[in-house]
Design a protein around this nucleic acid. Structure first.
Length: 124
DNA sequence: CCTTCGATTCGTCACCATAG
DNA sequence: CTATGGTGACGAATCGAAGG
């Protein structure tokens, strides 16, 4: 399955700016979504392998490889879920920030208008 | 009832960054 | 160096609405 990323390294400006977690909300006053997963206990059914030193036959090696792959897939599945959850949360944060700023902007515009009214010379 | 179609969700792969 | 975790991209499955 050769799905090479021809666009690799080509993060859009949006993506870069949105960068979650470690970069957090650039503007600070948002509860950054830097939440760690609650105690990374292994998901159900994960059993640690016998120590690698004890594997010999090709059969055992194959089983070990399969086991490793399944473990990796399971972990990645969980990681993807968590990643998506965090991303959703982050987007929510951004949306509420937008809402906040819109309100704030509206207030400022109104204030500006009243100040203009006050300051402008009466022309009648 | 279908059928179609856009949106959403999920699992997987490839890649990158980081830790050890 | 290898192992591991995070995440963008992709394809498949599923859902819900709209139209016939």
């Amino acid at each position: 399955m050769n799905r090479t990323r021809e666009l690799s390294g080509q993060l859009s400006d949006e993506e870069t700016e949105l960068a979650p977690s470690h970069m957090a909300a650039a503007t600070g006053d948002m509860p950054t979504y830097q939440i760690r997963a609650p105690t990374a206990a292994l998901p159900q059914g994960v059993v640690m392998a016998a120590s690698p030193g004890s594997l010999h036959s090709p059969q055992q090696l194959a089983e070990e490889a399969t086991r490793k792959r399944e473990l990796r897939l399971m972990k990645n599945r969980e990681a993807a879920k968590e990643c998506r959850r965090r991303k959703k949360e982050y987007v929510k944060c951004l949306e509420s920030r937008v809402a906040m700023l819109e309100v704030q902007n509206k207030k400022l515009v109104e204030e500006l208008e009243t100040l203009k009214d006050i300051c402008s010379p009466k022309t009648d």
